[in-house]
Design a binder for these strands. Structure first.
Length: 218
DNA sequence: CAGTATCA
DNA sequence: TCAC
């Protein structure tokens, strides 16, 4: 069975152009919404191969967000620390391949933010249920000379966007279904997080939110 | 915000 | 410590 490809059209929703977030960071409102149903179906298919799981942090805590990955390497956390693994520790098998359409979408989004030649080799898939959150952190486990591209699907969330210091002031930015965020350059290591997901019901995802983040790990 | 918990 |  051939995998469905989708065309590379990061359509702008009516009237909204790129929205600057910070130096080297921007938000593309609704640009992924036209492919949302397909991508959500792919996420669910992928999760049958590499299931969503809640990882443990080095300190022993359990993350409220459920995760799985696709691509050449997947982000993993356990008591020993954070790292990228070429195989899913849960199955011992390689992660599902990154769909070509996903890759193209991430590359196009990065280019719109000024990052030409983005070559993502990993996509972290976060599943938020009501109440799930992501504490303030930096993405430091992959190449910082490549941007991070983030797609949001399903329930809205409040994106916490800070600076290079944990103590820098935070902005609270709503991220809605189909929104794309790109950050790199001087803000690549900015602290960020997600406020506890508020209850709701989305026609495509029900009571949850999916977030895909594309990175270059090697 | 300090103390604590703790996977495979 | 990407938790609580």
């Amino acid at each position: 069975m051939t995998q469905r490809q989708f065309p590379l059209d990061l359509r702008q929703s009516a009237g909204s152009g790129p929205e600057p977030l910070d130096d080297g960071a921007l938000i593309l409102r609704g640009h992924a919404s036209s492919h949302a149903a397909d991508m959500i179906a792919q996420i669910r298919r992928m999760a049958r191969q590499s299931p969503f799981r809640r990882m443990t942090t080095p300190g022993g805590g359990s993350m409220s967000v459920a995760m799985t990955c696709c691509g050449l390497r997947g982000w993993c956390s356990d008591a020993h620390g954070y790292r990228y693994e070429e195989r899913d520790p849960l199955t011992g098998q390689p992660w599902p391949a990154m769909p070509e359409g996903w890759r193209q979408m991430a590359v196009a989004a990065a280019a719109m933010a000024g990052y030409e030649g983005f070559a993502p080799d990993s996509c972290l898939i976060n599943g938020y249920r009501v109440g799930a959150r992501m504490g303030l952190h930096q993405d430091r486990d992959e190449r910082a000379d490549a941007p991070v591209v983030s797609l949001s699907f399903g329930l809205p969330a409040i994106f916490l966007w800070g600076g290079l210091l944990r103590t820098d002031p935070l902005r609270r930015i709503p991220l809605l279904h189909g929104d794309v965020v790109v950050w790199g350059g001087t803000t690549r290591l900015a602290f960020h997080g997600i406020a506890p997901l508020r209850k709701g019901d989305h026609p495509l995802t029900g009571p949850c939110r999916y977030n895909l983040t594309f990175r270059r790990t090697a």
